[in-house]
Write a protein that binds this DNA or RNA. Structure first.
Lengths: 238, 238
DNA sequence: CAGTGGTCTAGACCACCTA
DNA sequence: AGGTGGTCTAGACCACTGG
């Protein structure tokens, strides 16, 4: 574990547990440097990370302050930036994955473009219903190149694909590009998510790439409008 | 202008103009350090920023590569992280703002909580219809404390509030917290945005704070589902 | 003025990848 | 082994804030 991560984790814990309450100033970088026995620039790196998470903000010339808990957001919110996937966010015991279709196919030109691969490269075409506490929650349509995610089984689909990629295949995620939109319900939404004739749907369309730059996933995740929102924290100047 | 910003801007320009094409390796940090006559750590800081923007990715031990243009996204997408506002994104000449209501009020407890102010603190209650190329685009309901944004006039509302805050009041934005959801259309949506009886709506609810940590805006922006999406780039490990 | 965070350096050392 | 990016340091200097 890197030093700046240890420092960030420690300070984050203090903020969340109330040791450093909202709107108050936290110790300055020099004090942290002494406490953790590191240089000031390493403390700064840790604080930069916390600022990007929206936990603190820094006023040059004044100090570093805890940012009050922001009163938006409900229980079913998901951070728009998260690689851990639904299972890790809500807890493995609460999430149930039901594979609806699991097929091998050649990608359409549109899908091949998103995955940045040839149309001759075999991909999985996976449709899963994700349930939360036994109730239909998200309908997830995923394409993945077989080459990058070999030996995918029905058993894995019932759990977490991300867990398989990360823990078993030892692949690291590099990043994701997501587009969030609203849309009208499809027949599948009505069938699997209990959407009504005109229930608004929220859809997240995403391309995920690995640390080595290869696109590993193109997927759409749909949920009924009042079941889930996405949240974005955005900090100026980083 | 800081050195790392100059370097980042220069390299960004080279990527966007095709000097460094997608999927190719760019010069290593040592070369950039010599070219710009800075230390390697300053080059790294510039590259970190570009990586967060999703332009490049780095493979430790191998090099730094240009990330191919991602094929999601349409004309009306907005980056979910943007402080410049609609006018700057789409161009002042294309955006028209029509103030529908512009009132002084005491905030409801719910609004006061979002703005982190007392219910005795006067706020503006602003409803604006934003038009793009003359067509209704976004319905924006904004609350702002009068104390932080004094002397707001109808004329400013017809242009860009953000421009006024940034250029005239010389206030810097610190960050924003956004929640994105789908919802059913309201009567206002039908009246001003030409939404039908059941047209799905996309809503962005946000709290914006200044560099000094004070909450300056609580707003909701609504648009018809197929008119606009929001995009998020998300990079692992920063 | 003193105190804060921000930038930048030269250089050491480590982790990782390819060969 | 050689090259890449990543971490970390000690310390200099600057920009900004408040009293």
């Amino acid at each position: 574990m890197k030093k700046y991560q240890v420092i960030a984790n420690t300070i984050r814990k203090r903020i969340l547990s109330g040791v450093y309450p909202p709107k108050t100033m936290i110790p300055d970088q020099k004090q942290f440097a002494e406490e953790f026995d590191v240089s000031m620039i390493t403390v700064k790196k840790a604080l930069d990370g916390l600022a990007r998470e929206g936990l603190i903000f820094k006023k040059s010339g004044l100090g570093t302050f805890v940012l009050g808990k922001i009163p938006l957001g409900g229980t079913y919110d998901s951070p728009a930036n998260a690689f851990d996937g639904l299972s890790a966010q809500q807890g493995t015991d609460r999430v149930d994955s039901v594979p609806l279709t699991f097929e091998l196919a050649f990608p359409t030109p549109a899908v091949a473009e998103k995955l940045d691969c040839k149309t001759s490269e075999p991909v999985y075409d996976i449709l899963r219903l994700r349930k939360l506490d036994g109730k239909p929650f998200i309908l997830e349509h995923t394409y993945m190149p077989v080459r990058l995610v070999p030996d995918l089984t029905d058993g894995i689909l019932k759990g977490s694909i991300y867990h398989y990629i990360h823990e078993d295949l030892k692949l690291a995620f590099g990043g994701a590009y997501r587009q969030i939109h609203a849309s009208e319900p499809t027949d599948q939404d009505r069938q699997y998510l209990n959407a009504g004739e005109h229930t608004p749907m929220l859809e997240v369309e995403q391309v995920v790439w690995l640390a080595n730059g290869e696109n590993v996933e193109y997927s759409t995740s749909r949920n009924v409008f009042d079941q889930r929102s996405y949240t974005v924290i955005d900090v100026n100047d980083f």
